[in-house]
Computed example of a mutant assay.
Amino acid sequence: MAVSFRFLLSLYAIVPLSLALVWLDSAGFDHALREALPTSPSHFLLFQVLFGTPHIVASNLLLASHSDYLAAYKGKLIAMTGFIVLFFGVGSLFIPYRVLYLISACWTVYHVLKQQHGVAKAVCRLPNWAFHLQLWLSVSAGIFTYIGIFMHNSLEPEQAAQVLQIAVLLTAALCISTFVCQRYVPNRLGWYFLWANTLLVVASCYVYSQQYYFLAILMPRLVHDITAYSFYVTHDVNRHGNRPENALFRLTASCRIPPAVVLPLLSFLLTYLLQAYGDDLVNLLLQTLFATQVYKAVTLGLIGYLALMHYYTEAFVWTAGSPLRRYIRFSGV
């Protein structure tokens, strides 16, 4: 099995579809869709179950279920766990919540867009300076778009306007940069990927400016998550398709569950259980045993930890020469 570049490119079809939806809603339905959608994806349990958290759970499961990967990265995993506990756990007693939130927001945007630019790098073949210029302009514009979306209720009108202006300026700079950098792309597929990543940021910024906050987050989230799953599934099929090599895939093979669906099914199921019942179950146990409760112990604490570990590990587990990369092939170039 191979990761198809053409399939990954097709995911960006969500961009024109979302723009068409916005224009149709504005022109024909007096913004009825905008009024019906939640102002933030975090207000919509189904969105949390379908996007964001599942692929985070999946990536952690992929590492945790393979003893050779744990052995290879044990030092890094322990060190990062300690850092998260100290900085985001103990540090939360001293560092203002908004500062921690902004750090997490910046890391989230960087992770999402770094993945997309990293995938495109293989076909765009930009010079290093051009690649990093595109990446950091995208990330910078994305950060201000993200802040404008998720903090719009806590920003003063003047602050919200300034955030939008900065996002628009950075997005415009990204477009100019893309015009300049496109001449370094040696093939048509790379050109498509270059502009697809740019238009993903442009569309998110535009949709955010029109206050379709849900769609502004949905576009990059869908592209990012399905791209990630394409790597996970390819890895699992190539490693366990002929002969299951760990307990999880031996168990699912005995149940005649194909390797391609094991991680998606398990990650979606665990995400639903954690989001829907995790906090209540933990607080029930804590209340029963210690007469105390912890605010969002699972949906903020555990899932937050898994997310930060995911951001960290994805930066190196799929690089050339890594144990996981041995099972990844590409097609459609």
Score class of each variant (00 low, 15 high):
53 T>A: 00
112 V>I: 05
143 I>T: 06
67 S>V: 03
268 F>V: 05
140 S>A: 15
241 G>A: 12
223 V>Y: 05
113 L>A: 09
130 A>K: 10
30 D>M: 04
231 F>N: 09
120 A>L: 04
56 I>D: 12
331 S>Q: 07
61 L>F: 02
44 F>D: 04
100 L>G: 10
243 R>P: 08
73 Y>N: 01
220 P>C: 10
131 F>G: 00
205 C>E: 11
221 R>G: 15
251 L>F: 10
228 A>K: 08
163 V>F: 00
8 L>G: 11
61 L>Q: 00
32 A>D: 10
116 Q>G: 06
203 A>Q: 05
25 D>W: 12
24 L>Q: 02
174 L>T: 04
191 W>M: 13
46 L>V: 11
239 R>M: 02
259 P>T: 06
74 K>W: 14
92 S>K: 02
146 Y>R: 13
278 G>H: 07
11 L>T: 09
132 H>D: 04
63 L>C: 08
143 I>P: 01
312 Y>F: 14
152 H>W: 07
89 G>Q: 12
174 L>E: 01
258 P>D: 13
47 F>T: 00
64 A>G: 07
159 Q>T: 11
173 A>R: 01
154 S>L: 15
26 S>R: 03
226 I>P: 06
76 K>Y: 12
155 L>Y: 04
126 L>M: 07
269 L>P: 03
163 V>A: 01
13 A>H: 04
290 F>N: 03
188 R>S: 08
146 Y>E: 12
212 Y>S: 01
204 S>W: 09
294 V>C: 08
273 L>K: 02
212 Y>F: 11
118 G>Q: 03
249 F>I: 13
